[in-house]
Amino acid sequence: MSIKSTKIFNSKQGMLIEGNSLELLESDENLSDLKGKVNLIITSPPFPLNQKKKYGNEKGEEYKNWFTKLAPIFSELLADDGSLVIEIGNAWEPERPVQSLLHLECLLGMVKHPDANLRLIQEFICYNPSKLPSPAQWVTVNRLRTVDSYTHVWWIAKNDFPKADNSKVLRPYSKSMEQLLKRQSYNSGKRPSEHQISEGGFLKDNGGSIAHNFFEMEALDEKRDVRLPHSVLSFSNTNSNDYFLKTCREKGITPHPARMSGGLVNFFIQFLTDEGDLVLDPFSGSNTTGYCAEKLNRKWVSFEIKEDYIEQACIRFSDPILKSPLKKMKA
């Protein structure tokens, strides 16, 4: 595939393309093969922050206009039963202790775009107590607000029934549920909520309980087990022991400051796709998405505009566990 890009890197399952994803997807004829073929677009685009970051981000009305323009591009790429998953943080009004509505306006702009037949399937919340206190001016300096410790994850699709199977992402049963299954009895009947609990409705072992739309990056309560799907949140951005961060330290490289959680990516890849399906990330950073897709035997295409982060993606893929390094294609 010949693409208007300075560099292309291949692995066994996928391709990392250097360049502006939106410009390439709109203008490069060779990428037209992707249209209608992508089973999952999963990404964490630059957040609408008030301060410019190294990884690039627009602000205010410019951000909303930029974000809304993604809708028809993504809609055209998705297969009819494909899904779009976007992680985005909260925004605050400049120099005011007031939360902005910008992220909500962006969501509405995307799902109501006249040239994109999209709708919000479900919202997830990703809670991370290790996030630094922000917005710092109003949390740690003036102490007027609490720590902004979560991000939104929006699951969007072209129709009401995108491919999905929650039995692939079951979480472990609670200890009380394990005991119930062992004794094969419980108090059935009508509850104060007026729900009628059948005699055998909870006696079948399904291998785990259905996942929630709230993810704890770390335990809210240290005395309570965090019951996450087995494939989910196996590592967090604060985990200093994984291969990627260890190698970055050894090479004196500062890792991408806004990496998407690998566990979060694992969850949605397994929940919304099958092996051999195509996963795309238009703003891949150090390419956590491609790494997770490779491990889970999915095809993938990622884009990244900054050479520094592509170097980090190559480090990520040099993980000996993966056995699928990124290799630069010959011109």
Rank of each mutant, 00 (worst) to 15 (best):
M1L: 13
F9V: 06
F9Q: 03
G14A: 09
M15F: 00
I17M: 04
E18L: 07
L22E: 12
E23V: 11
E23L: 13
L25E: 06
L25Y: 04
N30W: 01
S32L: 10
K37G: 01
V38H: 07
V38C: 04
S44T: 11
P48G: 03
L49M: 12
L49C: 01
Q51K: 12
K52A: 06
K54T: 13
K54R: 11
Y55E: 14
G56P: 01
K59V: 10
G60V: 02
W66Y: 10
F67V: 11
F67M: 14
K69N: 13
L70P: 00
A71W: 01
P72W: 02
S75I: 01
S75T: 02
E76F: 00
L77V: 07
L77D: 03
L77F: 06
S83Y: 07
V85E: 04
E87T: 07
N90F: 00
N90W: 01
W92Y: 15
P94Q: 02
E95V: 09
R96V: 00
P97I: 02
S100W: 02
L101W: 01
E105T: 01
C106E: 03
L108K: 09
L108Y: 12
V111K: 00
P114W: 08
N117S: 14
L118Q: 02
I121E: 07
N128R: 04
S130F: 09
K131M: 15
K131R: 14
L132S: 11
A136P: 00
V139L: 02
T140N: 12
R143T: 08
R143A: 12
V147I: 15
V147C: 11
D148A: 04
D148I: 00
T151F: 00
H152Q: 07
H152P: 00
V153C: 09
I156E: 08
F161T: 14
F161R: 00
D165G: 11
V169S: 07
S174Q: 09
E178G: 10
K182P: 01
K182W: 06
S185T: 15
N187W: 01
G189L: 04
S193E: 13
E194W: 15
Q196S: 10
Q196L: 11
S198Q: 08
E199Y: 04
F214Y: 15
F215S: 06
F215V: 12
E218L: 10
E222R: 12
R224D: 12
R224W: 03
D225T: 14
R227C: 08
R227Y: 11
S231T: 13
V232N: 14
L233D: 14
F235R: 15
S236A: 12
N237A: 12
T238V: 13
S240E: 15
N241A: 13
K246R: 14
E250G: 06
P255N: 03
P257G: 01
A258R: 00
R259E: 15
G262T: 05
G263M: 10
G263H: 08
L264K: 03
V265C: 08
F268G: 06
I269Q: 08
F271Y: 15
L272Y: 06
T273V: 05
P282N: 13
N287V: 01
T288Y: 06
G290D: 11
Y291I: 07
A293H: 03
N297C: 06
R298H: 06
V301S: 03
E304I: 07
Y309L: 06
R316E: 03
F317H: 07
F317C: 08
D319M: 08
S324A: 14
L326Q: 08
L326H: 10
K327Y: 05
M329I: 09
K330W: 12
A331N: 13
